[in-house]
């Protein structure tokens, strides 16, 4: 694997560029803070990102162990899923890796027979993006699940009581009380 050793050599500069691309994808004001190399972080998100991308990169070289990669990807995506990003923006950080690798290896690619390997790597990166999309959806679903759970836990006692007490005629302002409109007997934990 000639490509792998080349990538391993260039690891530091590739990761640095990749990291910068991710940081710059933050809302303009924020990226302004994060741009500075020496003091990039007033944002713990950065911790997960910088750790995450290194691990992901290593995994790419090693050939993508599904379980590990997903965990590393999760650390990054989980944060971006609750920050001010559209889904496309949230996941856009993966694709620039292709461009960065090609830029870093311009000379090597031109002078050798790497194109097959490059293509293979790029399709691995595409797979990565697809996995990231899964994770993103999982995170978003989690948020909705949490919302639902929260309402459930808030009203559990109410529901419990709904079996026993007559709710008719109570016009409650309490948000969760909408859930009281569940008919008797439907509530079972």
């Amino acid at each position: 694997m000639k490509l792998n050793s080349l990538l391993a050599d260039k690891k530091a500069s590739i990761l640095e560029k990749w990291f910068d691309v991710i940081i710059e994808s933050y809302p303009p004001d924020t990226s302004n803070f994060l741009k500075n190399q020496s003091n990039r972080f007033a944002n713990p998100a950065g911790s997960a990102i910088s750790q995450g991308i290194e691990n992901i990169f290593d995994e790419l070289l090693r050939g993508l162990n599904q379980g590990n990669t997903l965990q590393f990807l999760d650390n990054i995506v989980r944060i971006r899923a609750v920050q001010d990003f559209t889904p496309s923006q949230a996941l856009s950080f993966i694709f620039p890796l292709k461009r960065i690798i090609r830029e870093e290896l311009t000379v090597e690619i031109a002078g050798s027979q790497l194109s097959d390997e490059i293509l293979a790597l790029e399709s691995k990166i595409d797979d990565l993006a697809l996995s990231a999309f899964d994770i993103y959806m999982k995170c978003r679903e989690k948020i909705y699940e949490i919302k639902a759970n929260e309402v459930k836990s808030m009203t559990f006692r109410l529901l419990q009581m709904a079996n026993l007490i007559n709710t008719e005629g109570h016009e409650s302002d309490f948000k969760g009380n909408d859930k009281l409109k569940i008919k008797r007997g439907e509530v079972k934990k």
Binding site: S25, D29, K35, Q89
Partner: peptide, 22 residues
């Protein structure tokens, strides 16, 4: 803002911070 972006915005996220102050 809704969770949508125009297709051509996807590939080019603005990397430049605004010149404007807060």
């Amino acid at each position: 803002t809704k969770f949508t972006a125009k297709p051509d915005e996807l590939s080019k996220i603005d990397h430049k911070p605004p010149k404007k102050g807060w």
